[in-house]
Simulated assay, not measured.
Amino acid sequence: MDNRFSDNDQVGVVASFSELVNINFQGNTNALCWHRSLDGDFKEIISKLQLKENITVASPEDLLLLQLSEKGSRAREIILNDLQLLTDFGASPSLNLLKYYERDDEFDFISTDVYSWHVDRSPIGTDTFLCTYYGAASDIIPNNQVTQKILIPEVREKLKELHDGPEAEFEDFLKDNYFDLHYQAKSNAEPVNLGLGHIWRLAVDHPEQNVLPCVHRAPVEKGECRLLLIC
C-alpha cells in the first residue's frame, strides 16, 4: 500500500476491481483506489496516437492499429482490459489523449473549469472513475480542508451582483451555472495526488449518495500530454 494513504480516512485502498466497484463509501471515505504498479510503456502509446485537438478520444480500435514494442503492447493490453472491466460493469469509459482543458476566465473572482477544486454532480446514482497512465495526475482534497466558494462573503456578493434577479431565484442561479460545485482550499490544506496507474472511484453528488462528494481538480499540464481513462 502507498503510505500516503495509510493515515488518510478520505481514501480507501483496495486490491481488485471487484472491491473497487462493490465497497460502499462510508464516513469520511469518498475516494477508493485500486492501487497498482503497472509494467508497460504508456509514453509509447502517446507517441503513436495522433493528437487531433486539445482532447482526442482514442477508441479500442485506434489502440489496436498501433505498431508497438513489447512494453508498448503490454501498456495497450492493460488499457484495453481496464476499458473492458468498466464497460462490463456498466460504465462508459473514455480514453483521452489530453493536451489541456479549456480555461474558464470569464470572471476574475470565481472559476468553473476543471483546474478549480470541484465536485461532480449527477441526477442518478453514479461515481466518477479515472486513471492517469501517463503525464500529470489529478488531486483530491478532504472536504474539511476546503470552503465552498459561494459561501465566501466577497465571492457571494459579486455573484449576487452578477445574478441581478429576485433573491428567491439566487440559489437556483448558483446551481444552474455550476458555481456551487467549486471550492477554495484552506491555508493548511494537504491535497493528495492520485498518482499513475491506479484506478480511482470518486464519490459524486447525487440524491442517493450517503457521503460528501469527493473534491478534486485536474492538474496543470507540464508541457506533455496526459493519457487519461475517465468515466
Rank of each mutant, 00 (worst) to 15 (best):
2 D>R: 03
2 D>M: 03
2 D>S: 13
5 F>T: 12
5 F>D: 13
5 F>Y: 15
6 S>P: 01
8 N>E: 15
10 Q>L: 13
10 Q>S: 15
10 Q>H: 10
11 V>H: 00
13 V>A: 08
13 V>N: 05
14 V>Q: 07
14 V>R: 02
15 A>E: 15
16 S>Y: 03
17 F>S: 11
17 F>C: 10
19 E>C: 06
22 N>R: 09
24 N>L: 11
25 F>Y: 09
25 F>E: 08
26 Q>T: 14
27 G>T: 05
28 N>V: 03
29 T>G: 09
30 N>M: 02
31 A>S: 10
32 L>Q: 05
38 L>P: 11
39 D>M: 05
46 I>R: 03
47 S>N: 14
47 S>Q: 13
49 L>I: 07
50 Q>I: 12
50 Q>M: 08
51 L>Y: 03
52 K>I: 09
54 N>H: 11
55 I>D: 09
59 S>G: 08
64 L>R: 11
68 L>P: 10
70 E>A: 14
74 R>A: 15
75 A>T: 05
76 R>K: 10
76 R>C: 03
76 R>D: 03
78 I>H: 02
78 I>Y: 07
81 N>C: 13
84 Q>K: 11
86 L>S: 07
87 T>I: 07
90 G>A: 12
90 G>S: 10
92 S>N: 14
93 P>L: 06
94 S>A: 14
95 L>H: 04
98 L>D: 06
99 K>S: 15
99 K>F: 12
100 Y>P: 00
104 D>M: 04
105 D>I: 09
105 D>N: 13
106 E>P: 00
110 I>Y: 09
111 S>F: 05
111 S>G: 13
113 D>A: 09
113 D>R: 01
114 V>R: 06
115 Y>K: 01
116 S>L: 04
117 W>S: 09
118 H>L: 03
120 D>Y: 04
123 P>V: 06
124 I>H: 12
125 G>Q: 10
126 T>H: 04
127 D>T: 08
128 T>R: 03
129 F>N: 03
130 L>W: 05
130 L>H: 02
131 C>T: 11
134 Y>E: 14
136 A>I: 02
138 S>P: 04
140 I>H: 03
140 I>N: 03
141 I>M: 01
141 I>R: 00
142 P>T: 02
145 Q>W: 05
145 Q>N: 05
147 T>C: 12
148 Q>M: 12
152 I>N: 06
155 V>E: 06
158 K>C: 09
158 K>R: 13
163 H>P: 06
165 G>T: 08
167 E>Y: 06
168 A>K: 10
172 D>T: 12
176 D>I: 05
177 N>D: 11
177 N>G: 11
179 F>E: 08
180 D>N: 13
182 H>L: 07
186 K>R: 11
186 K>I: 11
188 N>C: 06
192 V>R: 04
193 N>G: 10
194 L>I: 10
196 L>A: 06
198 H>Q: 09
198 H>D: 15
198 H>W: 02
203 A>M: 02
203 A>V: 03
204 V>G: 10
205 D>W: 00
209 Q>G: 11
209 Q>I: 03
210 N>K: 12
213 P>I: 02
214 C>P: 05
214 C>H: 00
217 R>I: 05
217 R>Q: 11
220 V>L: 14
221 E>N: 11
221 E>G: 13
225 C>R: 02
225 C>P: 09
227 L>H: 05
229 L>F: 08
229 L>P: 12
